[in-house]
């Protein structure tokens, strides 16, 4: 599974697909102090991106695509 849950950390791994958007949205509600790690994310579906924008979780790591990285940087807060 591309979304890996480790405690309060959700790691995006490889190509992250639309099917996980609901899980992610639920996790952003359920997990306290949730932290998203994007360093091994190769791609994510629009649905995941907009879920991140809506939830504004803490992001660490930069996805591999430079354009995706800059989108996340401007749309999702990166530090607390």
């Amino acid at each position: 599974m591309p979304l890996v849950f480790e405690g309060n950390v959700i790691r995006f791994d490889g190509h992250c697909t639309v099917e996980e958007a609901l899980t992610l949205a639920q996790a952003l509600v359920d997990i306290k102090d949730v932290e998203i790690v994007l360093s091994s994310c190769e791609s994510m579906h629009t649905a995941l991106l907009q879920t991140l924008i809506a939830g504004q979780p803490k992001i660490t790591g930069v996805p591999q695509s430079k354009d995706l990285a800059s989108l996340i940087r401007t749309l999702v807060r990166s530090e607390g």
Binding site: A21, L22, A25, V29, L71, T74
Partner: peptide, 24 residues
């Protein structure tokens, strides 16, 4: 050269979010 995204309508609270409606 550059890519920007904008919410079409401001996002609802995460509890209300329908992740399968494209709002970007």
């Amino acid at each position: 050269i550059s890519l920007t995204a904008f919410p079409v309508a401001s996002f609802a609270a995460i509890t209300e979010l329908d992740p399968y409606r494209c709002n970007l």
